[in-house]
Design a protein around this nucleic acid. Sequence first.
DNA 1: TGTACATCAGTGAACGCGCGTTCACTGATGTAC
DNA 2: TGTACATCAGTGAACGCGCGTTCACTGATGTAC
Lengths: 204, 204
Amino acid sequence: MSASANRERNRRGEGAKLRADILAAATDLLERSGSEQAITLRAVAREVGISAPSIYAHFPTRAAIVDAVLAGAFADFNASLAQASRADAEPVADLRARCVAYLRFAAERPARYRVLFDRRDRVLERPSDQAVATRVEAFTTLVASVQRCIDAGVSTSADAFGAATAIWVALHGYATLRPALTAFPWPDQDAMLDRIITGLAALR
Amino acid sequence: MSASANRERNRRGEGAKLRADILAAATDLLERSGSEQAITLRAVAREVGISAPSIYAHFPTRAAIVDAVLAGAFADFNASLAQASRADAEPVADLRARCVAYLRFAAERPARYRVLFDRRDRVLERPSDQAVATRVEAFTTLVASVQRCIDAGVSTSADAFGAATAIWVALHGYATLRPALTAFPWPDQDAMLDRIITGLAALR
DNA sequence: TGTACATCAGTGAACGCGCGTTCACTGATGTAC
DNA sequence: TGTACATCAGTGAACGCGCGTTCACTGATGTAC
């Protein structure tokens, strides 16, 4: 298949546009297939309408593409949660809004969600401080949200960190299992969330 | 590499022994690599010390090997939980023992655990009733365990199924995230379990 | 007891595939003079 | 204003790899006579 059939060559100085197209195509492949294995140089090239070697002008290796997709997923995830946050509202309402946004992100972009926490730690390559911060951001704000419930006297928990970890773990389990086991007679999501928040944040 | 260096040819009538060796090698590859992708015909053959085509006497396709590994993992998982169960003891102690066994299985055989619930439903191939029953067995007994807590008046939950689902989801989240994110400052597992059981089974 | 032979438990070479990556190249585009 | 040319944005062919699978085969082993 000729690439020119699908895509016009960028004008001079606009070569960097291809980088964005490559990233979008890779993200799309991930989301459609459900697996980061689907992100191959050749599949991405096919999707964008270029030849495979053209990718090397923008990414040094296949892994670099996957990393960039992952970074984008984390940024989207953090943005979704931040947007849902209502730090000035009732603390329980804020906590709930954050959890709803968490599950919504996972439901709407299941493959991207999975990839956020599915990867084993890379022992060899040390992630940058910024990468670590991005990864921890959503959790940090969750702890703060639980702490606000404690401060307001509506949670009897003595440990915001522990409670937030338990909530996170439950959300992750639900977010992961729900799309994987569609035949399971899942309870209503709102009821599930009530159980998780009330039980694990030790709400009165 | 010659196979005869590693393995003696089975005697006549004992060809079926190879099936068990193939399964063990495939399981080992899964557990060592952390991914079912590592189960390739050639890798399995290398591991067992035979040539790749020899596998076809025992499994029609690569997928059949993976399925068999998965079935074995489910059987082991159910057996681990069943063994931990103390249905005649205090209901809370039984529930806790089951949860501990759940997390222990996941910690000791992380790749096998993952594969139990990681796979998306196969929409095309309908699983047999028996396969479904095996998959649901552990959960069914968890619901019963919660129900015993309710019957004993120690849980205020009105819905054993909902509570069991919440507990399962939290256990799964923890079992999945804990080995994946080793840099996270995980709280003590016992404290975590207390939070999950007490909070989600609505224990007094 | 000896031997021909069917069967069993495998082997080794080959197929076509998609992959990541390298390499030498091409042709349009903008710029210097 | 015209043109030579450097540069940019790519291309197409090729590499070696491991894969699932097929095929024709081999040689040891047990058994029938």
